[in-house]
Design a protein around this nucleic acid. Structure first.
Lengths: 212, 212
DNA sequence: TAGATTGTTAATCGATTAACAATC
DNA sequence: TAGATTGTTAATCGATTAACAATC
């Protein structure tokens, strides 16, 4: 095997994948500041991570740096986007058009970073057909067909906790393979379907432990 | 040392602390369903975690279960609240009253789970004095005095990324000890100040890796 | 060249899991 | 009692760090 080439059969630890978006975020900031080159040491200082860990993480995917110099920011950014498959746009289905769902639908951070909300569903007949931002709220009965016909693979759940599992089931049935769950509850999905959670209260509770 | 008593000098791994809010969330769901007793096996099944890990995590804080029976849900819930110090209410300062800040301020999940937003700050003179939900938006110049006089220890940042570090500095200067950062950027704070991040796009990017 | 930094190996550290005596 | 489940120990597994040859 030539040096600096990654082994395509290697299974990368998920914890490494989880750090790549953080690296990408830091690189975006640096390039926005007009910087062109950085090093594992500088990234480590910015992120509070050891430089060895950053080098080791990146080495899973190939050699992106130069000895003595460091990393070209634009180049590394591009490589990380390729690895994460975020060098394209993704469409997302959103379920739930209550206060939380509306806030999620209106959050500009998604579109700014390549994630477009393509459809919004709600079970409340009062809401169906109403405009939510740029979207017309669709009934749950149209969920599967819409997701399949648009080829959507990612969904966000923003319904009350007690409905989250049932919604997840319907999403999985519609072929969704990645779910971002804003409902404060754990959901069960089959192997091969990925779930991430947004629960700000859980983060707060993790910190209050230390506030003696 | 008697059995089932935790060592108060033991330093608990932060990764264990991070799982306690997840356990608490699951227990709340079970008690809401009217259940009274559970086991490490059941919790493990619900959460996708091994039962051994749950027992080991809980054992850091004492023996909360009964052999042969399992855990009294209400009792364990109460104990976890004590450990996390969420058996009380907490006041929070929010910085940023743009779209994101307003959505955060209006999210009912905080108050429902014991976190009350006590004040909202923004640097935009157009916004100061305006009502945002139940709050009057205050200028940044009042941040330090308000936080100190109200004895607030927790803050949330909901400003654009480029201002997040400066806001964090001001919060630390005002004595804040825990920060929940909604800006998609890493911030640096002194030792003893805790930071957690809410970046839904980072979660999405972590999942797109697997969508081959 | 001298200085700096990478990519990688081996050592260390810490977290998870398996197993089981204790006991409800 | 028999069956079930805890709390804990020891073994395993995996992740992080230290160190350094390679080299820009």
């Amino acid at each position: 095997m030539p040096p600096h080439s990654s082994n395509p059969d290697e299974i990368i630890p998920d914890i490494v994948i989880g750090r790549l978006p953080i690296y990408l975020r830091a690189l975006m900031r640096l390039s926005q500041e007009g910087r062109e080159v950085t090093s594992s040491h500088e990234l480590g200082r910015i992120l509070g991570i050891s430089s060895a860990q950053i080098r080791k993480d990146l080495s899973h995917f190939g050699g992106f740096g130069k000895q003595g110099t460091g990393y070209q920011i634009a180049y590394l950014e591009d490589k990380l986007r390729q690895v994460l498959q975020v060098n394209r746009e993704w469409e997302i289905a959103l379920v739930g058009a209550g206060d939380l769902g509306q806030a999620v639908a209106n959050y500009r951070g998604f579109a700014d970073r390549g994630f477009h909300i393509a459809c919004v569903f709600d079970s409340n007949p009062q809401k169906i057909g109403k405009q939510s931002g740029k979207f017309v709220i669709q009934p749950m009965s149209e969920l599967k067909e819409t997701i399949i016909s648009k080829g959507i693979q990612i969904a966000m759940i923003a319904v009350p906790a007690e409905y989250a599992q049932e919604v997840a089931n319907q999403l999985v049935d519609a072929g969704i393979r990645a779910i971002l769950n804003y409902a404060p509850i754990s959901i069960n999905v089959p192997d091969g379907v990925h779930v991430q959670y947004i629960d700000p209260v859980a983060h707060l509770q993790r910190m209050t432990y230390y506030l003696k």
